[in-house]
Measured scan of single mutants.
Amino acid sequence: MATGGRRGAAAAPLLVAVAALLLGAAGHLYPGEVCPGMDIRNNLTRLHELENCSVIEGHLQILLMFKTRPEDFRDLSFPKLIMITDYLLLFRVYGLESLKDLFPNLTVIRGSRLFFNYALVIFEMVHLKELGLYNLMNITRGSVRIEKNNELCYLATIDWSRILDSVEDNYIVLNKDDNEECGDICPGTAKGKTNCPATVINGQFVERCWTHSHCQKVCPTICKSHGCTAEGLCCHSECLGNCSQPDDPTKCVACRNFYLDGRCVETCPPPYYHFQDWRCVNFSFCQDLHHKCKNSRRQGCHQYVIHNNKCIPECPSGYTMNSSNLLCTPCLGPCPKVCHLLEGEKTIDSVTSAQELRGCTVINGSLIINIRGGNNLAAELEANLGLIEEISGYLKIRRSYALVSLSFFRKLRLIRGETLEIGNYSFYALDNQNLRQLWDWSKHNLTITQGKLFFHYNPKLCLSEIHKMEEVSGTKGRQERNDIALKTNGDQASCENELLKFSYIRTSFDKI
């Protein structure tokens, strides 16, 4: 039985969820670079991206490699990797027998973001014989899940209580170790020597080791999670996991709180800001991140802002960003909400898709409305799209047979046209069989910064309504002859009103 693990408890099935942008060198404390989270699957090609990484700022997932063999891993080693800020997950990587050479110096898994409450997941690794993470000293947050690894031993010899604050939620089941077939031998045991430290858990006094050649490092209890030197002297209180010299914040392997210019500090002093819960960055760093993602459509890219001495992905609820200094300031009234469309555009074809934009005031991208039916549609669209004030790209209304009016965009005031449909149009209306009105132009103002209007096959939309939009939106004169079809717009509506004058002759039985 794995020490510190839980057996036999019912657990939810383990679901495996399925960018080499360097964020800056980590400095003297770390020998390499800070790398983003990685999802490495199918083959070993991307694994080489770990070569210079000291910190993975995010998670590391290595999974679904069915053609790899043990010899493929023999020359692979990433000794610079010290810390993973989120979680480490391995799933069905064939041929991998140990992690001792792959990650010989991995010391800390912070667990800032977890995989279903777990910071370390080893699942269905069919050839893994031992973990071998002999320098792993601290899992700051989260638990361990090690399950269905039929060859995995050296679990009962690990004292997880020396690595985690609590072992109650560890789930370590259905491994070879369960069948008591392992016969784990710690260093020196074969020669009758006791080389590794022994600890007591559940009444068992057991030597602690990761492999037959690597003991588990056990520091004096007084050192807590700070770690200790090879001689057993406690590291500085700002260290986490390990250090090369005692009581020196510049000799830590990793930091308990924050890293700044080669030393570990309790908090980031001005003019620095907390970033990702582990390091200090200056304003320029946060500003660069903001600008890199301002026009990016890459998933996970955030326009970072500053709030409460932190550089964070977005302002919290009730705050909006001051564009001059990136500071989050309290909103006066309802907060603006910028919604970034991942692929640059979004099609609204149902109430469900409209709900995804609920509360958005600025759309960074283009909207395509293609709704053919739905219950209580006008009210639903207004509830979900009615706060949109600005669209950076274009607005396209296409084959939306259920629409009679666009009044559900009740606050839309600006279409920038930074991206144009077919390279020309910022407003595009095609084949809307029941569209009769755009907006009530006596109450609604709309500016279209650039781009043209396109109207074709809107049989109940009168040309007068379209011409009014040209005047109000500032697009009059931009359109070419064929942009607004004269014969297919309003051709099934009563669009022309003329005053009919009647004269009559009164007659009676005795007068003409």
Results as ranks from 00 to 15, higher is better:
137 M>Y: 12
140 T>N: 10
244 S>H: 09
176 K>W: 14
302 H>Y: 11
195 N>E: 14
33 E>M: 14
132 G>E: 00
65 M>F: 09
277 D>Q: 09
108 V>H: 10
226 H>T: 13
182 C>Y: 02
109 I>M: 02
240 L>W: 00
294 K>N: 03
79 P>Y: 04
298 R>E: 07
44 L>R: 07
296 S>K: 06
143 S>G: 08
306 I>R: 02
327 L>S: 05
320 T>Q: 05
235 C>G: 01
233 L>G: 12
115 F>K: 04
273 Y>D: 00
253 V>Q: 03
75 D>F: 06
32 G>M: 07
261 D>A: 08
229 T>R: 06
250 T>F: 10
144 V>H: 01
191 K>Q: 05
263 R>Q: 11
311 C>F: 04
175 N>R: 10
79 P>H: 06
83 M>V: 06
173 V>S: 07
261 D>G: 12
329 T>V: 08
104 P>W: 00
302 H>S: 10
287 Q>A: 15
270 P>K: 05
279 R>P: 00
166 S>H: 08
91 F>P: 00
77 S>I: 08
243 C>E: 00
197 P>A: 07
81 L>I: 00
229 T>M: 13
204 Q>P: 15
243 C>D: 04
59 H>F: 02
177 D>H: 15
243 C>W: 00
161 S>Y: 13
224 K>C: 05
171 Y>F: 10
81 L>F: 01
102 L>S: 01
38 M>S: 03
192 G>C: 14
111 G>Q: 00
173 V>M: 04
194 T>P: 12
99 L>P: 01
30 Y>R: 01
114 L>M: 05
306 I>D: 04
216 Q>P: 02
248 D>V: 04
292 K>C: 11
104 P>N: 00
218 V>R: 09
310 K>R: 10
217 K>A: 14
158 I>F: 06
135 N>M: 14
86 D>N: 12
184 D>A: 10
37 G>C: 03
243 C>R: 00
201 I>C: 13
60 L>P: 00
310 K>F: 06
171 Y>L: 08
248 D>W: 03
160 W>S: 01
227 G>W: 10
326 L>Q: 14
286 C>Y: 08
99 L>R: 00
112 S>I: 15
64 L>V: 10
82 I>S: 08
167 V>D: 03
268 C>P: 00
99 L>W: 01
36 P>E: 14
240 L>M: 12
80 K>I: 06
318 G>P: 07
251 K>S: 06
196 C>G: 09
43 N>S: 07
30 Y>T: 06
268 C>I: 01
57 E>Y: 09
111 G>V: 00
214 H>K: 01
68 T>Q: 09
336 P>N: 13
79 P>V: 04
31 P>Q: 02
142 G>R: 01
69 R>A: 14
115 F>R: 06
237 S>I: 12
333 G>L: 02
234 C>I: 03
54 S>Q: 13
146 I>V: 08
164 L>E: 01
203 G>T: 07
193 K>N: 06
270 P>G: 09
275 F>K: 02
144 V>Q: 01
226 H>E: 06
265 V>P: 01
165 D>I: 06
105 N>D: 06
80 K>Y: 04
286 C>W: 03
269 P>W: 11
237 S>N: 11
88 L>F: 09
212 H>F: 12
119 A>W: 01
184 D>W: 15
320 T>W: 09
